[in-house]
């Protein structure tokens, strides 16, 4: 009897079946021959799936990979220009294998505006983020797009001393507590 089976039988004496299922994944107690057969079955299934992979499956897979990399970036707390809103949108468009014109049309956004956003000459608004969420079937949610934009703006505010000075010069009658 394998160790897995011994422990499973021990657990069965102490816990309800529902609790075992909830707390454990325990491998089946198979003979070498049975295990080899099971491995063969799943290998054949997997290789067949790979050879018949559809465009829709490719899209889901690659968009999910993009979602996960954006998620990791957002969790990291740092800013990287590789993950600015426009860069992630460019990556998404590349995955979808569409032209900018097609994407602008699909999203009901003027082509010029989309180009300006992709070239960092215009900031995206919340409406566009909701549309992008829908466009990816929620794989990349609106909140991710929002956080990408905010992450960049936080970075700019902390680094952009030039613009701070320029804008400061335009302010009159400002409060001055620090002397």
């Amino acid at each position: 009897m394998s160790e897995y089976k011994k422990i499973y039988e021990h657990l069965s004496e102490q816990l309800a079946q529902e609790d075992i299922a909830d707390g454990y994944l325990i491998p089946a107690d198979l003979t070498e021959e049975e295990r080899a057969g099971a491995e063969q079955e799943i290998r054949e299934y997997r290789l067949k799936k790979l050879s018949t992979r559809t465009e829709s499956e490719r899209l889901l897979s690659e968009l999910t990979r993009l979602r996960l990399s954006v998620h990791r970036y957002l969790e990291s707390g740092v800013y990287s220009s590789d993950y600015s809103f426009d860069e992630v949108l460019k990556e998404m468009i590349a995955i979808m294998r569409k032209t900018k014109k097609e994407v602008a049309n699909d999203l009901d956004v003027h082509y010029t505006r989309l180009s300006r956003i992709l070239n960092e000459r215009e900031e995206p608004n919340l409406s566009l983020m909701y549309r992008l969420e829908k466009y990816s079937d929620r794989i990349i949610p609106a909140i991710y797009w929002w956080k990408l934009m905010i992450r960049k703006q936080e970075f700019l505010i902390s680094e952009d001393q030039n613009q701070r000075l320029i804008e400061g010069r335009r302010v009159k009658n400002y409060l001055e507590f620090s002397g």
């Binding site: 994944l25 198979l30 099971a38 997997r46 799936k49």
Partner: peptide
């Protein structure tokens, strides 16, 4: 493609 496999005990 997110492919994950298992061979759990029959009861699970």
């Amino acid at each position: 493609d997110g492919f994950v496999s298992l061979i759990p005990k029959t009861d699970l």
